[in-house]
Structure formats: C-alpha cells, structure tokens
Design a protein around this nucleic acid. Structure first.
Length: 567
RNA sequence: GCCUGGGUAACUCAGCCUGGAUAGAGUGCCAGCCUUCUAAGCUGGAAGUCGCAGGUUCAAAUCCUGUCCCGGGCGCCA
C-alpha cells in the first residue's frame, strides 16, 4: 500500500516535470497519528527548495495531477502542506471481518520465527526466601515473552534455574539450626515463607554478631563436602522452598518445561573452570582462587572460584549453558533477570565465548526494578511485597467490588476474583516498558479503573454480553457503510498483527499492553455511541463486536491474561 | 572515578529507535450522563519552559554535543 502511495506521487511529479530524489520521497511517506488525516500522508516540505513554492501550494498542485484515485483508495485530500491518502476503509473493514472470522485465535500470529528454538529462563529464584513482587514482574515478562515468541512462530522452552545452593542458602540453614527449634510449616505459615523467615532472622542477628558470616562460610564448606547432617537440613528446607514456589507459580498461571537445579550442576561448572585454568583462559592466584581477566574489555576481573575452592554465582551458569544446548539444541537462549545484573551477564557471555560453549543467541532480558515509595525492596530487611500476600490481597479487593454489584455463588466469586486479580497485577506489571524501573505504590497501584487490567476484561465482558444477547448471526452485507467510530475501531484492529511483530522485535510486552488498552478504549467509545442490538445494522455491528472481542482476547493472551465472559 | 538507565501535566506513565499536522493517556480535581446492549463505563473542562544550554534541519520531546539532577552496577555476595 505504501508502495502504491509512492507510485501515485511519483507519477504526478513526473507529469509536473519536477526533479526529485526517489528515496527521499519514499521515506517521507508516513502514517498519520490521527486516523482522520488518512491512512498515509505525504508532507510536501521536501519539494519546496526544488519547486520554489510554499509546501501547501505544492500539495494542491500534486493533488490536481493525481486526478482520479485507484480502486484501493477512496480519496486523496490536501490539508495544508500535507497530502492525505485514504484507503477504501469500508472494503478494508469487511475483508478484516472475514479474516478474523476465519483465523480466530490465530489472528495476528505469523511464522517469521519458525526456524528458531528459544529457551526462556525465568524466574530462577533463590531457595532461601519466598517470591516477591520483583519475581512477579519477572514471571509476567517471562511468560509474556514466551507467548509473543510463539505468536511469531518460534518454539519456546520455558526453563527455570533453581538457585538452591550457596552462601545465602546456608544463612537460612544456619539460622534454622541455631534458633529453629525444629519448627515445620503449618497451615498458617506457607513452607517457603517459613524458610524466608529464617533468612531475615539471620540478617538481623548478623548485624549484632558479624562473626556469623564465618559460620555460614564454614557451613557452605561442609555442604560442598557433603556433610550428612547439613545435607539433611538443606534437603528439608529446600523442599519447603520449592513446594512453596510451585504453589505460587500455579496461582500466577505459569509452568515450566524444564527445571534445572544449581546443586546438580555446580560441580561440573567447577571442572570446566579448572579446565579453563589448564588451558590458560583463566588465572589461578597463589592462594588458589580462580579469576578471569577482562580488563582489556573494560570489565575488570571476575572471580570464578574462591580460594577455599567453593563455587561462586557464575560457576553454575557455565555448565548450565553447555547443558541447555545439549538438552534442547537451541538457536536462542534468553535469561530474564533484573537490570542490576547487566554487568554479570556481560561477563558471563564473554566467559562462555572464551570457553567455546556452543549456546547460541545469548541474550539477557534485562528488566527494571520494582521500587516502593520509600525506595528499594530488600528481602534481607523484610521490606518486600510478598507475591502470595499480594495476590491474596488483590483477590479480596476484587471480591468486595464484585459483591457490590452482583450476588453470585461462592465458586463463581472465587473464579472471577482470581482471574480479575491476576489481570490487575499482570497488566500493572506489563504495561510499563520492560527496561524501566517502576514504582509500586500499594495505595494507588491496585486500582480497577482507567488504564488497568479490569478495564480490559470489562470491555471484553461487555462485548461478550452483546454477542450472547443478540439473535443475529452476523451475515455480511458489504453494501452497508461503517460509521466513524466503527471505522476507527476496525482500523485499530487492523494494526494488531503489526503489534505482535513489534513486540517480538523489541522483546517488550508493554507494546501489546498499551495496544490492548487503546483498542478497548475505542471499543468503549463505540459501545456508548452506537446501539448494536435492535439497530438496523445489527448484523454488521455484531461482526464488528466479534472482531474486537477476538482481537482483544488474542492480545491479552500474549500478556498471559485470561478473560471473563461475565463480570 | 568508570560503565549504564532515566528526567514529558500534581502523581504514574505512552510517544523518542524510524524527526513532521494542535505533545497523549490514566489517576486525582471540576462539570455532566444510568426506565435503553454491564456506570469497573462515557462526555466535557482545568492542568505541560517535554531537566537546562547550544547545534543540525524547511521542521526537534524525537538526532548530535555539552551540562545538571536521580537510580542501578563496577564483591573471593547472589
């Protein structure tokens, strides 16, 4: 279409005997921000120096030379210095309606990435504390990017690395051994929360007694040597943590195709590092520690093993990279991890490259932190928004809202409040550009009005309700003209496949989130300005509502948000 | 100090990559709209030196340079 517009301009200019730079003209053709200015526009400024005329006159002259417009277009108009090209929007709308009717949940998808097999790793928690709001952002992003990649034809392996060993884990264990008194999870205390309580306890005690840090290191040494008693406690607490995570994943609606455990792979990582020392890639200091010199690349020195021989954070990722490739034969590998670890991933990828580990398409999906009004969340200090608590609290708020409006069965109330609460939380987390830090204000962020998840579900439920109540089948009679709001809505729907691609290239779900909102907003305007049921154009409008409903559903699917037929 | 992200309405954010038509949205505030498809909605209004200063351009929130302010990173922590 863009090409057609260009050809029309080119032809007119040739008639006028004007010299022009084809590439410059072509790249000037743009899509107006406001749909009332047409579907394509050409600003005539570029021609002013050559033609020695004011741009608005150039526009008028070109318009005259264009003469009758081809069938694909309905009109070409001038607006000051602009030439505005209008597609045959009526025709286009009918074609779109037919397309969506046929493609249904596949509308918007493409196969651009069909030769890719991508592993997306998220949220890779530490097993010393429960999941918090930061993990929810991570999971929302991980799941959404998985769906966006699949929507663009890729095969996706959702993976999770459980960081179940290391000094931080030993800290929870130490506190439990010292002050736990054999406590076990109860109905009141979820198992991963119990583990987290001991981690916080350790941090508090360490402030008074810094020597605890040495004890934790001794414990790590014992763990790495396989000390029976240590392993026993570790196994018990780890299971508590992992069982707790599993419940949270289920609540939040995410699953993994593959679970990796750091405790299973760190030893092999150590071997690779020591082998790297032999090959001269890494350097061993006199006290036995191993480091990697990246000063030339401006990344400083990175330690890979401690002088006591115990592993550091990077150890696991090294063997894991090898393992991922061996397990799945991937073409791409994404790590969904916060932006505070950008330096780490720079270094890691350099290490993997130097070791010739064949994992391809490495990418750190770096997302911004979730901050609170008083600053950063710190799990050590217990100033975190807990994932389970938040979900539960939002569900309670939703229940109150529903109960204000309608009396429904307990079961239906549970179902609706769960879906709505997740929509509210996920949308809140995904509507913000992935790279940006975001502010979570407990008082304001949980809202059900305006640009929120519930607004989107509400729009969807309204559309569903119309379709359910109408007796019309949606026969297509392409003689009927669409009203302005209907055109606007159909033009927005037409953008969806492009949005799916854009979110894929930018690897950012907020592209889809913002689109979903804009789409719903136009639908709500349409809903208020035009009656569907009982209207003379009921069949056409049912088709429009149907197209909207399907597109919004597809769009929300990419965000990992389920819809409700009634709310 | 070095690396890196940000600064757009009172608040939270789009827009910036790929420069164009009066800079958008939500919240909050003000004024309206429920006997009619769900008011978790819709309509209208007030509210902006797009951090600051230069530069490039017919045209700059958008590109370039400088500068100020805020966050994150630069651990034998994870």
């Amino acid at each position: 279409m863009r090409q057609l517009v260009f050809e029309i301009i080119k032809k007119a200019l040739k008639k006028m005997d004007v010299k022009f730079d084809e590439e410059k003209i072509k790249s000037s053709v743009e899509v107006p921000k406001d749909f009332s200015n047409g579907d394509y526009a050409f600003p005539c400024f570029v021609l002013a120096p050559e033609m020695k005329m004011p741009p608005h006159e150039i526009a008028i002259q070109i318009r005259e030379k264009i003469g009758n417009v081809p069938l694909e277009l309905s009109d070409v108009t001038t607006a000051g210095p602009y030439l505005n090209f209008f597609l045959n929007r009526n025709l286009l709308s009918y074609e779109l309606i037919k397309k969506i009717k046929k493609e249904k949940e596949n509308f918007g998808k493409n196969t651009d990435g069909k030769s890719e097999k991508t592993m997306i790793e998220f949220p890779s928690p530490n097993t010393n504390k429960p999941l918090h709001l930061g993990h929810l952002r991570n999971m929302a992003i991980g799941e959404s990017l998985s769906r966006i990649s699949e929507g663009n034809g890729e095969k996706v392996v959702r993976a999770n690395l459980n960081n179940d060993r290391g000094i931080h884990i030993c800290k929870s264990i130490l506190a439990y051994q010292k002050w736990g008194k054999g406590k076990t999870p109860t109905k009141k205390i979820k198992s991963d929360h119990l583990v987290g309580d001991f981690y916080v306890m350790y941090s508090k005690k360490e402030k008074e007694k810094p020597e605890l840090e040495n004890e934790a290191h001794l414990l790590l040494g014992k763990w790495e040597k396989g000390d029976k008693l240590t392993i026993e406690v570790w196994k018990k607490m780890n299971k508590w943590a992992l069982d707790g995570f599993e419940k949270t994943y289920k609540e939040f609606g995410i699953t993994h195709d593959k679970e990796y455990f750091e405790s299973n792979i760190y030893k092999k990582g150590k071997e690779i590092i020591l082998d790297g020392v032999k090959k001269g890639i890494f350097e061993q200091t006199p006290d036995g520690a191993v480091k990697f010199d990246l000063k030339k690349e401006g990344l400083g020195e990175k330690y890979l093993l401690r002088s006591d021989g115990t592993s550091l954070y990077a150890t696991q990722d090294i063997y894991l990279a090898y393992l991922k490739q061996k397990d799945f034969n991937l073409t791409k590998s994404y790590y969904v991890v916060g932006n505070e670890q950008e330096y780490y991933f720079n270094v890691l990828f350099k290490i993997l490259k130097n070791l010739n580990i064949p994992l391809k398409g490495l990418k750190h999906i770096s997302y911004g932190m979730v901050n609170l009004p008083d600053g950063k969340m710190k799990s050590r200090e217990g100033t975190v928004i807990d994932a389970d608590d938040l979900i539960e609290k939002v569900e309670e708020l939703v229940k109150k809202e529903i109960s204000k409006r309608e009396k429904i069965s307990r079961k239906e109330l549970e179902k609706r409040s769960h879906i709505l609460a997740l929509a509210a939380i996920k949308y809140m987390l995904l509507k913000i550009n992935i790279t940006k830090n975001m502010l979570f204000n407990p008082k304001e962020s949980i809202s059900f009005e305006g640009n929120t998840g519930p607004y989107l579900l509400y729009s969807y439920a309204r559309a569903s309700s119309i379709i359910k109540k109408s007796k019309k089948t949606g026969k297509i009679n392409s003689e009927e003209k669409l009203e302005e709001k209907e055109i606007e809505l159909m033009l927005k729907i037409k953008d969806f496949p492009g949005i799916v691609k854009k979110a894929y290239t930018e690897l950012d779900p907020s592209v889809v989130a913002n689109y979903s909102y804009e789409l719903s907003k136009i639908f709500n305007e349409f809903y208020h300005s035009e009656d569907v049921i009982g209207s003379k154009k009921e069949d056409l409008r049912i088709n429009i509502v149907n197209s909207f409903r399907q597109t919004l559903k597809n769009s929300l699917y990419l965000l990992g948000i389920d819809v409700l037929e009634k709310m």
